[in-house]
Computed example of a mutant assay.
Amino acid sequence: MSSLPSQRRRIYLMRHGSVSYFDEAGKPFLPESVPLNEQGRQQAHAAGKVFAQKQIKFDRVIVSGLPRTVETAKAVLAETGQQIALEVWPQWEELRGGKLAAISDAQLKDAFVGAFEGVVSEDKQFLGGEAIGEFMDRIHPGILQLRSDPDWDCVLLVLHGGVNRAILSYALTGQRLFLGNLAQTAGCINVLDVGSEAQDWVLRVLNYSPLSELQDESRTTTMETLLEQYKKSRGVRAA
């Protein structure tokens, strides 16, 4: 690896593949344990094939430890043929919601989508649970920890939609901001380069989806879709 101070290193930042958070009746599964669904497995292997075609080699692979990130990372590595032990960083688990049953019908929309609209206030809660400020408190130190370690040149991070937004927001602004409307499609790939200076970030690729390059299937967000699924369990009319 070059010792030149201007040499940038490469971060491939993925969101895990698609999972099913609710059953057909809109009742939630435990988010900490949901596996990839069939579409999610296809997305993960498709991402792996992109890396394999470009002969990209990772020095490290980091996941949050939640099954959906582990399964996605393993599928990617299976396609690239690399045998790399996954590093588990639990501080990069997804935004933690509260109890859905405690959210009134009138508050449902804001609880689901409010944390992903524009520049988000630090006191905004996700699903009545963790606030964005608390979330950034545990995400940002990991960014600094990764960048301070000189023993890698190319790393794959397989994380979550909210976590990726926090990392991308920091990379784009250099500030403690959360840009909620940065789309992160299931199984997507972001590409960032980082230099030795704190503000030296270059965003190369954002939200690239190998199975849907133009993302023309839908114009709704993930949380808007999940909101409509959950409404079924309450008998709330879909929007």
Rank of each mutant, 00 (worst) to 15 (best):
A115D: 09
A115C: 14
A115G: 15
A115Q: 07
F116L: 08
F116R: 08
F116E: 06
E117H: 15
E117R: 15
E117K: 15
E117Q: 15
G118D: 09
V119M: 11
V119E: 15
V119N: 12
V120A: 08
V120S: 07
S121C: 03
S121H: 13
S121D: 15
S121L: 11
S121P: 01
E122I: 02
E122G: 04
E122V: 01
E122Q: 11
D123M: 01
D123L: 07
D123R: 02
D123E: 14
K124M: 14
K124A: 07
K124I: 09
Q125H: 13
Q125A: 15
Q125I: 05
Q125S: 12
Q125E: 13
Q125Y: 05
Q125D: 02
Q125K: 14
F126K: 04
L127I: 14
L127E: 07
G128N: 05
G128D: 02
G129C: 10
G129N: 07
E130P: 12
E130K: 07
E130M: 11
A131I: 06
A131S: 15
I132Y: 13
I132V: 15
G133V: 04
G133N: 08
G133L: 05
G133P: 03
E134N: 12
E134F: 12
E134L: 09
E134G: 10
E134R: 08
E134A: 15
F135P: 00
M136E: 10
M136L: 15
M136G: 00
D137V: 05
D137K: 10
D137C: 01
D137H: 04
R138Y: 14
R138A: 03
R138I: 05
R138T: 02
R138K: 07
I139F: 04
I139Q: 08
I139L: 03
I139W: 02
I139Y: 02
I139M: 12
I139N: 00
H140T: 11
H140C: 04
H140P: 00
P141N: 05
P141K: 04
G142F: 01
G142S: 02
G142N: 03
G142W: 03
I143D: 00
L144H: 08
L144R: 02
L144Y: 10
L144I: 02
L144G: 08
L144E: 09
Q145P: 00
Q145W: 01
L146V: 06
L146A: 02
L146Y: 01
L146N: 00
L146S: 01
R147I: 01
R147G: 03
S148L: 02
D149F: 09
D149R: 10
D149V: 04
P150G: 09
P150Y: 09
P150A: 06
P150K: 10
P150N: 11
D151P: 03
D151K: 13
D151A: 14
D151V: 00
W152R: 09
W152H: 04
W152S: 06
C154K: 13
C154S: 12
C154N: 14
C154A: 11
V155K: 07
V155G: 06
V155H: 08
L156S: 08
L156K: 07
L156R: 05
L156N: 07
L156W: 10
